[in-house]
Design a protein around this nucleic acid. Sequence first.
DNA 1: CTGTTAGCGCCTTCAC
DNA 2: GTGAAGGCGCTAACAG
Lengths: 335, 335
Amino acid sequence: MTVTIYDVAREAGVSMATVSRVVNNNPNVKPQTRKKVFEAIERLGYRPNAVARGLASKKTTTVGVVIPDISNSIFAEVARGIEDIANMYHYNIILCNADKKKEKEIRVINTLLEKQVDGLLFMGGVVTEDHAQAFRTSSVPVVLCGTKDENQTMASVDIDHEKAAFDAVNVLIAAGHRDIAMISGTLQDPANGFARYQGYKRALDEAGIELRDEYVRIGNYRYESSVDAVEYFLGLSPRPTAIFSATDEMAIGAIHTIQDNGLRVPQDIAVISVDNIRMASMVRPTLTTVAQPMYDIGAVSMRLLTKLMNKESTDNMQVILPHEVIYRNSVKEPS
Amino acid sequence: MTVTIYDVAREAGVSMATVSRVVNNNPNVKPQTRKKVFEAIERLGYRPNAVARGLASKKTTTVGVVIPDISNSIFAEVARGIEDIANMYHYNIILCNADKKKEKEIRVINTLLEKQVDGLLFMGGVVTEDHAQAFRTSSVPVVLCGTKDENQTMASVDIDHEKAAFDAVNVLIAAGHRDIAMISGTLQDPANGFARYQGYKRALDEAGIELRDEYVRIGNYRYESSVDAVEYFLGLSPRPTAIFSATDEMAIGAIHTIQDNGLRVPQDIAVISVDNIRMASMVRPTLTTVAQPMYDIGAVSMRLLTKLMNKESTDNMQVILPHEVIYRNSVKEPS
DNA sequence: CTGTTAGCGCCTTCAC
DNA sequence: GTGAAGGCGCTAACAG
């Protein structure tokens, strides 16, 4: 039924070793033989069996990528960076979605490892001890992208989330705001949550602004979760004049909630956040935010992974990429 | 180095067949033996090699999904439906992004086939003869989801795009509009492009409204592409009082372009489209649109695929799912 | 219930 | 430059 390398060999009048050589681009084949083999392949419609090949060679030339949440556009952009570099080095990539469930992340990691991927990329999300445990049992290299592990022992590519948040809040402070609220992610999340909150705190601290508990609400990173937060802020007195959101999606929810309550952004309340997802320029007013270099995070982490898979020496296993404030219209210029 | 089934067998004092049985949940194993084996597995940290297993059993229990564009949130939702059903039937799914490039789609299809997936799901996009060709060489079942092939010979799950567009335009007509412009996708695209355009034409026709060429612009489905279209419409006289956009993302671009030009939605110009992506309820005004049952498209196509993989008989190979108008605020109620 | 024995399709020395 | 032969790690009859 299925045509194998053996069929091709017979058809071409050579041995399977030779067929294997031409399929694998081994130079030690006479051009004429190569041609014969290619013709036989064509005639038979032979398609190499990657599974058999993987078993024999103990390499699959594929890297597994776990995406915590496929509907989050950040990961889409990161994935694009990963892919471009992967193609460049002739790796296939297979994406596995984990639907924001830790338990599913672990399962997916194990599935990928069972499938004998040559390397693993773990995007975003929290790296718990259970994750670390799964990674530890891996015989192939793993790199974290867009996140890092607690004690920073694993290879990772990320931005400095604390500093990004710090910079964002300082844009607000520079614009004259002092009553600055924050919609945070869960503090259990070391990157998007805890670190960004720390950055907020430090910015206030260095500006001599006192931190008020009622100015901080925890969201779940989704649009909807920020409406409660903002409505809460709106009832406060003094009402905050600016909001720092840990992520863009929540910031957009904030902008709309402010507007739905009859107030204007940025005149009544300014909004800033961190991420720079595509949607940030699709809201009115457009969102001022601190951009993560998403494509680069993907590209650099894939590049790092190729080095690891090749056992090349790598100096820096924890790379931090620069971020940048993107000035748009949700914060008004300091006058 | 790596621990194999053989090591486990020795450690547990049984044969590899027995180990294989417990790993595969074969009931024909004495509980006590099973326990011994599990302990050995635990002790050795054994992880089954899916590649070897795939080679021996000629099944990989994984289905390949090609996503035309990972950054398009429609596919994210469809993927979720696919996954839920896949998990239910114990299939792993691996996603491969094709970046909207036809050539890459074909490549990805072949890679997936080489990897010996048990089935293939092809999401969205145009199905050209080259695609059909690639599918034809597949020895495993393929189902199209969110698209169909030209002569409808392949298994597919989709909505009736023509009818969806027709219904959308009729919402506009019911609201009293007669000067209705359309931002279309490319007419080469049979589903999102051509069919939706046909629906627009038919709605006008049945309402006795004459079709005007200058009322139709072609976009590329992206937000940015609709700004040109809308600016063009704004210069027309009579200026359209309503716009039907082939997709939500372009509709959102249209709304903002209208607003950026000092007009109001829906008072000055109404906007409607087809899709119902998450962002549709994240704009102001919220977008009235015809919802595609994205999750269901994914779920139903995966279910269909499982049947095909099991060689169960299936009556209906071309399933059409119902769509539904979602009334929000970008079209005002008929008075 | 458990063990033995062939392969699955290919890569990879090692000869020639 | 090419062929022969031995696995890669596991499943699937087939015995027992």
